[in-house]
């Protein structure tokens, strides 16, 4: 398999106000292969978001390197886009849903003949057909995150990075969004790297899971999720293997 993303011994340390430096990420290495759905799961505040910011080229690592499609990362790579947890801050309040999704195409600066049609197609894909003329602040949290995902897809990324994308929506919406995301992933074949503290969400979605420790972050374990696809909210979660994985990851994290 071809690694589309390689994280090589990435460390990140911060200088505190008192001048001491603290280590947030400690030599993390892992790889993501093309078309994979990979999750990083770990306790809150373990530096997962920091790691994602490094991969997205928004915050350079202190040491180590990142390679996206054989190119070293210095600044945001053009074939990758990050979806933020705070969709309400990330969406453009001055643009309609259609306008927000069109932004993804505009950012690519590729003169598409039918940008409108493309944007509408993506809005339909994330299940927001009929809301094109609405503004983000008129929609519920779950719907807003759908807009953010459609906007990211419009950019046409090969890798989608997602930082706790469903962290601030209610439990039921969360399950719906998980299924929408899986459908998109299956339809488009985009590589997805997702960060979450929800162990079951990670298992439900992923091909592979990297379990991340508390600060300073290290990879504790690599877990291959050999649950059959397509996944199903009832049957997959009722699978004995699912419970086994859940317990194993929980044991690792709670150590």
């Amino acid at each position: 398999m071809v690694a589309i993303l390689e994280v090589k011994k990435v460390s990140k340390s911060y200088r505190q106000l008192d001048g001491e430096s603290t280590l947030a990420i400690d030599e993390i290495s892992f790889r993501v292969e093309k078309g994979e759905f990979v999750s990083l799961v770990g306790p809150s505040g373990c530096g997962k978001t920091t790691l994602l910011m490094c991969i997205a080229g928004l915050n350079p690592p202190s040491t180590g390197g990142l390679v996206v499609k054989d190119v070293e990362v210095h600044g945001p790579p053009s074939n990758l886009v990050l979806v933020f947890q705070e969709f309400n801050k990330s969406l453009f309040a001055w643009r309609s849903i259609l306008g927000n999704v069109l932004f993804g195409l505009e950012a690519r600066e590729k003169r598409s003949q039918d940008a409108q049609g493309e944007a509408r197609r993506l809005i339909k894909l994330v299940g927001l057909e009929g809301f094109e003329r609405h503004y983000p602040w008129e929609l519920s949290g779950g719907m807003q995150q759908r807009v953010a995902i459609a906007r990211a897809l419009a950019y046409g990324p090969e890798i989608l990075l997602m930082d706790e994308p469903f962290g601030s929506v209610d439990a039921l919406t969360r399950l719906e969004l998980e299924d929408t995301l899986l459908k998109i992933w299956e339809d488009l074949g985009t590589t997805i790297l997702l960060v979450t503290h929800d162990i079951e969400e990670a298992i439900y979605l992923s091909d592979r899971i990297y379990v991340v420790s508390r600060r300073p972050s290290r990879i504790l374990q690599t877990i291959d999720v050999d649950l059959s696809r397509p996944r199903h909210q009832i049957t997959t979660r009722a699978d004995a293997k699912f419970m086994e994985l859940r317990n194993e990851i929980y044991r690792q994290i709670s150590q």
């Binding site: 928004l58 990050l82 801050k89 505009e106 950012a107």
Partner: peptide
């Protein structure tokens, strides 16, 4: 987050000023 959004979509400084 809004500034990061502009950057992750690969906007140059000039375009992120105009568009965001």
């Amino acid at each position: 987050v809004l500034v990061y959004t502009a950057r992750t979509f690969g906007l140059s400084h000039g375009r992120s000023i105009i568009k965001v």
